[in-house]
Design a protein around this nucleic acid. Structure first.
Lengths: 355, 355
DNA sequence: GGCAGAAGCGTAAACGCTTACGTAATTTTT
DNA sequence: AAAAATTACGTAAGCGTTTACGCTTCTGCC
């Protein structure tokens, strides 16, 4: 019942532990005969090396950390980062690694240089840092301490770090292009914190699309401090109080778009007849809004998979130059933009509350 | 830069590593003087024991595994279990533990007794097994191997295991009681797989409520093999084809309720005017449906916290008798049941698409 | 003042694995 | 056929902790 250890295998086969270890790890210095016998027995008893033992001698834990700011975690929020983590888990499992989840609280300031128990305890070989609002000082400290890192949905300027992003600019470009193609002239933008890479890039895509079409941005471009349903709601109300009302509303993410839907409905404006509303992310709720939300899908699991791949590659070869990877997006046309003629790509269960 | 190890502390203080270890672990056999100096220095350099080293000598990893069936994970599904995991993470972090996420695939049958790499590698002290459709053989094998376990949203009859469940029967009782109290006579039930504890208990609560009120169950009680939007949709269509149509529809979970909303809408029935629809779970999407969905809220993070607590307690004292814990639910009255008079408890951002 | 017991501390082994080094046997080279 | 190089294996040290055991020094007691 007690699992076999290398020592036991060595004993049963009448060889030394060193030989067994070499055989198991494909190292030279073992005869074909002995090697075969070792591998056979190992397979038979489903031998797996003891994690801590191996870790102690190799200084490798075969484990990655997935770090996310506690605030962006669920509790009513869309589980965007959980989807990313799921992608990470699948990818690393395929390569024999594990993931430890850790959500960091607000910097408490009790420690001069912020750090993570995970790291101090040497429990991880590398970290995936997800989300735009992780403490800069923390990231820098980890990087300078030599911890292999990959950033997801975030960048750190002036620093050679691996970064995985969704192609937000391209997605926004496509979205706004789509609206323009359907005759919208007055497209307002509900933005988020400009220091977040994703929201900044989406804003850039918005402006670029308009410029490319020779149009001007809608007079009032809002930049909210948060990207929640509430902020989308209040921003839309402020927008509607203006003299000229937009014909389309591009929210920087789906949560804000949902807030916009609510504000419009309360003001008696019909969506999409009076004003079109589109979002970004394709969160789970987007297909259940009324009307179902046209949006730009982000492949969240894919982001996780790619980030994990980058990190594992870097661990295998620490000299790999850092790189920035963009994961493509996809336009999801539902009813909230009124562009029924556009090609509709929908999964079977979507649009449960078709209007 | 290199983190200090016990050896270094011992050297700096001119004592032995054993003494340092004893001081750090609050063990007797250390003078007050030396102890103080050790603790001071340790605090100063933010010493944290090396995970693998400690793990190797104590056979404790300070790590828990969170296991979930791959199929129930996101990719379009509601991240129910991710919320649970989040609760787990918060709870264990407070007690200095870590969580490793692992989603298990379908049993591939290549191994006579199913097991987990996590366990064979001795990476975890215990496991939280989430979801009703984990392989029975796996659970039993782990249990018999002496691995501390806690089940969430699942039970294993005939086995003394710690179990954490939401109080589904009570929730269903309250929900159906609420409908009855508002005059509904014909309440249909859209059920799920009866071997799942949660769906079975909800069905039981439904019948119990009706029996308590002296009513009979609606002639056709449906039990679907899946609890998806699609199955809710098709089950509702079948129901509507019957001679007598219910006045209220109680779906065993929110996904099915969403499917029901779609089917009703397609058939031209108004919700809640013609037929009330209620669900269970309070998934993220429930507040964005049209109309917003009345449902029974499950405290998913709390489930995770409680499960983690049970497991940690058991690790601290392996003799703890196994126990079954029920986490209460909460009726969330929104618009889909038409019972506007009931007390409405809503968070601020809810009901974004108020009808 | 002598002795038992306790307290404070060091020594060394153990956990399970990898790996540098040494040695004997085998193969290759001349 | 002798020297040199290669191969196959064992020995032992090391990774960072904890802990059983043993030695000294103190304390208290008669």
């Amino acid at each position: 019942m007690m699992p076999m250890r290398i020592k036991d295998i060595a004993e049963r086969l009448g060889v030394s532990v060193a030989t067994v270890s070499r055989a198991l790890n494909d190292k030279p210095g073992v005869g074909d005969n002995v090697r075969r016998r070792v591998l056979e027995l190992a397979a038979e008893v489903a031998f797996t090396p003891h994690g801590a033992g191996r870790g102690l001698s190799t200084a490798r834990t075969q484990t990655l950390g997935f770090i996310v700011r506690r605030k962006v975690f669920p509790a009513g929020r869309d589980p965007f980062y959980l989807h990313i983590m799921h992608g990470v888990e699948e990818a690393v499992a395929e390569r024999g690694y594990h993931v430890i989840l850790s959500s960091v609280g607000d910097p408490d300031g009790t420690r001069p240089t912020p750090d993570l128990p995970l790291v101090r305890e040497n429990r991880v070989d590398g970290l995936i840092l997800a989300g735009p609002d992780l403490d800069r000082a923390l990231i820098l400290a980890l990087h300078q301490a030599g911890m292999p890192l990959v950033l997801v949905d975030n960048i750190l300027r002036q620093t050679a770090l691996d970064v995985v992003l969704s192609d937000d600019r391209e997605g926004a470009l496509a979205m706004v292009g789509h609206l323009l193609g359907h005759g919208h002239e007055q497209i307002a933008f509900l933005g988020g914190p400009p220091q977040w890479i994703s929201t900044a890039e989406r804003a850039a895509g918005y402006h670029e699309a308009l410029a490319g079409a020779g149009k001007r941005a809608f007079a009032t471009v809002v930049h909210e401090a948060e990207t929640t349903v509430e902020s989308g709601y209040s921003a839309t109300r402020r927008l509607l109080a203006q003299a000229v009302v937009p014909t389309a509303l591009f929210a920087v993410n789906d949560s804000m778009a949902i807030g916009a839907l609510r504000a419009l409905r309360e003001q008696g404006r019909r969506v999409p007849a009076d004003v079109a509303v589109v979002g970004f992310d394709d969160i789970d709720a987007a297909q259940h809004t009324h009307p179902p939300l046209t949006t730009v899908r982000i492949f969240k699991e894919r982001l996780g998979r790619v980030a994990a791949g980058r990190l594992l590659d870097r661990l295998a070869d620490p000299a790999t130059p850092s790189q920035r990877t963009y994961v493509g997006t996809e336009l999801i046309i539902r009813q909230s933009c009124g562009c029924v003629l556009a090609p509709v790509r929908e999964e079977v269960t979507a649009g449960s509350t078709l209007a």
